[in-house]
Simulated scan of single mutants.
Amino acid sequence: MSAPDVAVQARELEPAMAALREMRARESGPQVTGEWEVKCQNCGGTTGFTGSLTATRCPYCATPIQRDDVHNAPARLPVDGVLPFAVGEKQARELVDTWVSGRWFAPSKFRKYRQLGAFSSLYTAYFTYDADTASWYQGERGDDYQVRVGTDEDGDPVYETRTRWYPVAGEVGNDFADLPVLANENLNRNRIRALEPWPVERARAYSPEFVAGHLCRTYDKDAEESFPEARQRIESAIEATVRRDIGGDHQRIHQLNTSWNWLAYKHVLLPIWLLTVVYMNQPYQVYINGLTGEVSGDRPWSKVKIAAAIAAVLAVIAVLIGAFAATRGHHTPAHPAGHSTVAPPHPTTHR
């Protein structure tokens, strides 16, 4: 690899988006919707690129081919960095083997994914956000205390929990670094979110050499369009910080105002191994973090296996109920057979 090992620098969001809008007003960016054809320099075959796909292999000779007109195009946000694959294909398949083997209630045919599924390496587009915030709040702190309100039937005291509320106000600061947001559509965002955390601090400056031979996608939503998802996570973290600062058993937040002292982003490509299995005409996808090996995915459920498991549980319950009933129905005599004990008559006193 001749790509330079250079640290990735963040860009301020607002100035970068303003410059992008100005550039778009002067010239149109490359087409990232519909179909685009690229000619292979090795065999001359033509490969169709759909939507935001920017790198793949030639279907005729397996030569890596890319769209050179997308990444770092003037009318698009440039790629700042890339995290190269650290998990190879062999290890990735072993991780999928382990994951699939643990899906006990998946159909047996689904578990034969090697014959049914497509396995590929994919660079997905992400925007990661850095933020420095200061938040002022006003609210109430609630402290619980116990009050005796009476006694129960046995004469034991009964207590009730009540809360004292105090007015509070304060200021908290939060720093956020490399908060990742997937910028591609048509992928299971929740499953890919489960692959976090990403060691973005290890990203290197982008070079086309990194994505050669892999599938690669450019962003479908830019840094401004992707930011609301990051903002929601940031605001949730700020609220949690405020509640910790208030303390007590309960917190009420009446006012919360946040100032954004710094807001920046990085456009990075992150590596994912993707398994797609079509089962009963329904696609299921399993994702593997190409750096940490974390696995997240979907799979079908076997109705036969679930029914068998329910039947087994019901059988065990029936056996336990039968054993309990037999124990309750068996009476042991209080004394040995053939012997009886007669209590002496109670003395009567005559007055």
Rank of each mutant, 00 (worst) to 15 (best):
267 H>R: 05
4 P>N: 07
132 D>M: 06
186 N>C: 02
36 W>R: 15
278 V>Y: 03
235 E>I: 06
168 V>I: 11
63 T>Q: 13
344 P>F: 02
211 V>P: 11
265 Y>H: 15
334 A>V: 12
276 T>F: 03
350 H>F: 11
316 V>F: 08
57 R>E: 14
113 Y>W: 15
318 A>E: 03
141 R>V: 10
94 E>I: 10
248 G>R: 05
60 Y>E: 13
221 K>C: 00
87 V>S: 01
144 D>A: 14
79 V>A: 09
34 G>L: 05
233 R>D: 04
102 G>Y: 08
68 D>C: 07
33 T>M: 09
73 A>Y: 03
110 F>D: 00
305 K>Y: 01
308 A>N: 09
270 L>F: 00
325 A>K: 05
283 P>R: 02
47 T>Q: 05
51 G>K: 02
167 P>Q: 12
171 E>V: 13
234 I>Q: 03
155 G>W: 02
276 T>H: 01
256 L>S: 12
32 V>N: 13
289 N>W: 04
87 V>L: 10
202 R>H: 12
3 A>S: 13
50 T>W: 15
207 S>E: 09
43 C>I: 00
39 K>T: 15
122 L>S: 03
104 W>M: 08
206 Y>Q: 10
91 Q>L: 02
324 F>Y: 08
130 D>C: 00
183 A>Q: 09
202 R>I: 06
29 G>K: 08
67 R>K: 10
157 P>I: 13
230 A>R: 05
102 G>V: 01
317 I>Y: 06
284 Y>W: 12
99 W>M: 04
266 K>H: 00
140 E>N: 10
34 G>R: 05
197 P>G: 04
93 R>E: 14
243 R>L: 03
348 T>M: 12
292 T>I: 09
92 A>G: 11
100 V>C: 07
280 M>Y: 07
109 K>V: 02
129 Y>D: 03
240 A>I: 06
323 A>H: 00
305 K>M: 09
309 A>P: 01
242 V>H: 10
162 R>N: 09
151 T>L: 05
187 L>Q: 04
260 W>D: 04
271 P>Y: 11
222 D>A: 14
51 G>N: 13
49 F>K: 09
42 N>T: 08
211 V>K: 01
225 E>P: 01
296 S>Q: 06
226 S>R: 00
264 A>M: 06
291 L>E: 05
202 R>K: 14
232 Q>H: 01
281 N>P: 10
105 F>L: 15
56 T>P: 02
223 A>C: 08
263 L>T: 12
164 R>H: 13
249 D>V: 13
245 D>W: 10
272 I>Q: 01
178 D>F: 14
177 A>F: 06
153 E>T: 12
348 T>I: 14
66 Q>I: 12
186 N>A: 11
169 A>F: 11
202 R>Q: 15
65 I>G: 00
313 V>N: 09
301 W>M: 13
223 A>W: 01
104 W>E: 11
304 V>D: 12
340 S>Q: 08
315 A>F: 15
9 Q>I: 14
314 L>R: 07
207 S>C: 11
248 G>C: 08
69 D>K: 06
228 P>H: 13
260 W>T: 13
175 D>P: 05
138 Q>V: 11
64 P>N: 10
252 R>C: 01
